[in-house]
């Protein structure tokens, strides 16, 4: 649906050149929710703006629904943009218009006959649950309601793609959840492809099918959300995960482990899917002559699949510890040794 090939964007100022996107390539499939996560300044905002040419790429191609956006004439681009909805962090609603007229705005731009447009606006307000706010002005709405208006407006011209530019970043967690749910419903009901950018891993976790991690103008990792959550390949991805899953071992726990007289190891065990439900740890303890102390753990769900993290201190003979860890690996768990606690000598 969206195919970005070798996209590079350089901002030129009189004093310097800033590389905002460095040879970025990615494909968004039809009907999926694709997330791009990155810190501010990583280039994600530039990337999403290149898709509807709000930013002109320095080089590279952007193919949306079979059309190369970089080759369109001004008029062709305007028509193409009418089929790409966009929602914004700060909503960008017109303060001079009521909710109804704000949703009407893109229909006016597309010169949809007034009678037809009014019917469409009514449908959209129903869809986003703001039927009773039609006559209100944006200033009279809460943040969540404003974003609902933004979503209704973005959907007015039946777009095939919805671009979301940090749409929930200005909202509280509760409202964020409800807006994300609305986006997911829209994705399912209307089969709209959604490309969103965010700096919040929770957004990715809640609604995305696939994710790309962007860091310093480059895509450093791209893949299935579940895969990246269970096995992040880059430090950037790891740090984003840490922001929502506290997998860092608290300092005092490390001390506890170090003070132990026996030979011990601190390990992080990550598990996903079915293995989360099996008693592998207890089997391990029964099978090997070791002791295990659970220091920290959590289980989360990504797209309805359980996913978790357990930090264990395993004590015993080093050889047996190694055998025990191999046993866990054989059972499909990800093992990371955090610390070899000093042995008693």
């Amino acid at each position: 649906m969206i195919e970005i090939k070798n996209l590079t964007k350089i901002y030129t100022t009189p004093h310097q050149q800033v590389l905002a996107l460095d040879n970025v390539s990615l494909t968004v499939n039809k009907g999926e929710i694709f997330g791009i996560i990155g810190l501010s300044g990583a280039g994600k905002s530039t990337l999403i703006r290149c898709i509807n040419m709000l930013e002109k790429p320095t080089s590279g191609t952007i193919i949306v629904d079979g059309e190369d956006m970089t080759l369109l004439s001004k008029d062709e681009l305007r028509l193409a943009r009418q089929k790409i909805g966009m929602i914004f962090q700060h909503f960008n609603l017109l303060s001079s218009r009521t909710v109804f007229d704000n949703v009407m705005f893109p229909l006016e731009i597309a010169k949809v006959p007034r009678k037809e447009a009014k019917k469409r606006v009514a449908e959209l307000l129903e869809l986003v649950g703001l039927k009773d706010k039609a006559r209100a002005y944006p200033s009279q709405l809460s943040g969540g309601q404003k974003q609902r208006v933004g979503i209704a407006r973005a959907l007015a011209n039946d777009p095939k793609i919805l671009l979301s530019d940090e749409a929930t970043s200005a909202l509280d967690p509760e409202t964020t959840r409800s807006i994300l749910k609305l986006l997911k419903d829209i994705n399912r009901q209307l089969n709209i492809t959604i490309l969103l950018i965010t700096h919040d891993m929770n957004v990715i976790k809640q609604i995305c099918d696939r994710v790309a991690v962007i860091d310093k103008a480059r895509i450093v990792e791209i893949g299935d959300v579940l895969t990246i959550f269970s096995n992040p390949a880059t430090p950037t991805s790891r740090s984003f995960l840490d922001s929502i899953i506290k997998s860092e071992v608290p300092e005092d726990l490390l001390h506890l482990a170090q003070n132990n007289k026996e030979s011990s190891r601190l390990v992080r065990i990550s598990f996903i899917g079915s293995s989360a439900g099996e008693p592998i740890i207890s089997t391990m303890i029964k099978k090997f002559d070791i002791k295990a102390n659970i220091l920290y753990g959590n289980i989360d769900r990504v797209k309805d699949i359980p996913f978790g993290n357990l930090i264990l201190e395993i004590m015993g003979e080093p050889v047996i510890i190694k055998e025990a860890l191999d046993f866990l690996k054989d059972n499909g768990l990800e093992i990371e040794v955090l610390k070899n606690a000093p042995s008693s000598n």
Binding site: R78, F88, N92, L94
Partner: peptide
Amino acid sequence: IEWGLVEAALSMGAT
């Protein structure tokens, strides 16, 4: 006027 409003209109294909 915030630039975001102009940007929103551009994203809708306004002349």
